[in-house]
Design a protein around this nucleic acid. Structure first.
Lengths: 142, 142
DNA sequence: ATTTTACTTCGAGTATACTTGAAGTAAAAT
DNA sequence: ATTTTACTTCAAGTATACTCGAAGTAAAAT
């Protein structure tokens, strides 16, 4: 009879995989975002399920969800899932992500113009030529 | 002889225009991000130049620049502009914005899949049909 | 005339998300 | 055998960006 051993990861391995300090991983566990992490000789042994959840944490956190909202989402998902609440939270967050995306695209274009503008000022100064005018950059697409 | 009067804006008007509380506008002034704001009978009177700067503050702040970094950028831009430093800060920030944009797009797709997945679970429960499997959503484009 | 509204300054307090420090353990390296 | 490394827990401290409270002023509304 074979006993399937589940692959686990140490806190340092997980830290490297997700670019999060070990202290942050412990902090998430304190908050309850990660739980039931088994200990092997006192050390945390993360399973694939924990990595999946951590991936979700990073995704939602990076899109501006607070850790408290994340906890609410997980609470809705986890024990005997409240699907209406889960869907509501997800729908609402997705809307916010689309707004962020629109804003970020707009800001990206603005910053690109600023970058060009200052590079052109520098060139003009070097060449002793006419300095550019911001009005020529404000609504221009590069 | 005509005296051209420059249009100014009260702190409440600016607050509404930029969706920032008045306390935050005062805070930015305390930090030095906004300065030389004239007072008319003790009240702040923002000029177009201040609005432009405030637009820049919002744009850079919303793309993840800290207020301290913003101060450095403005210091480089303002008094007898250090063009090399300005360009360096802008170039560096623009790179970060492109990274953010790539990450946000990736996260947006992931969240879209999650939204679909949970809506499909809900439908399946209502119809007493087979529950969907996340593996069918993981790498699917919607 | 006096109350209300809309500001003013300055200092202190708060929320979020970590981050550090102290004291301990246990296995691996020297 | 003992030092080093890599964790452990728990409590306290920090950074950033606000946010609030108190006390005051000055013009507009009643």
């Amino acid at each position: 009879m074979k006993t399937a051993t589940v692959k686990t990861y140490s806190i340092t391995e997980v830290s490297k995989m997700y670019h999060l300090p070990t202290t942050t991983l412990r902090y998430y566990e304190d908050l309850g975002l990660l739980y039931d992490i088994p200990r092997i000789k006192g050390r945390r042994a993360y399973t694939q399920a924990h990595l999946n959840r951590l991936g979700a944490i990073c995704c939602f956190k990076d899109t501006g969800m607070t850790l408290k909202e994340l906890q609410e989402l997980f609470d809705a998902q986890d024990d005997d899932a409240d699907l209406d609440k889960t869907c509501a939270i997800l729908d609402n967050h997705y809307k916010r992500v689309l707004e962020q995306l629109a804003l970020l695209k707009k800001n990206e274009r603005h910053i690109k113009r600023k970058v060009r503008f200052y590079h052109d000022i520098r060139s003009a100064k070097e060449n002793h030529s006419k300095l550019p005018d911001w009005d020529d950059y404000r609504d221009r697409e590069f």
